[in-house]
Amino acid sequence: QEPLTASMLAAAPPQEQKQMIGERLYPLIHATHPSLAGKITGMLLEIDNTELLLLLESPDSLHCKIEEAVAVLQAHQATETSHKSSTTAF
């Protein structure tokens, strides 16, 4: 796929813009986190499109953002686990 530019994005209807970005983000995330790729891509797609274009242009920034998403997921799962164990204890 050719790199996604702001003008390409602007030419597409809003509902297709996230799809276009997602199509490019997903393989990059799948390469490092195959089992979480769908979830992480969804989380990142909630970021503003301008910021997402920056991420697609900067592998380092994208890597940091992916690791942030993984950390958020892990913290959430830890909260869920501790919440379940505390409710089962009563």
Binding site: Q19, G22, E23, L25, Y26, P27, H30, P34, A37, G38, K39, T41, G42, M43, L44, L45, E46, I47, D48, E51, L54, L55, S58, D60, S61, C64, K65, E68, A69, V72, L73, H76
Partner: peptide, 26 residues
């Protein structure tokens, strides 16, 4: 590198590209 500030939510729906099954589930 550009600094991107935004809050990530676990409630976000999962995203799969079109043609997902053919390309990623071999």
């Amino acid at each position: 590198a550009p600094v991107v500030k935004s809050k990530l939510s676990v409630k976000a729906p999962e995203f799969y590209p079109s043609g997902y099954n053919q390309n990623f589930n071999q």
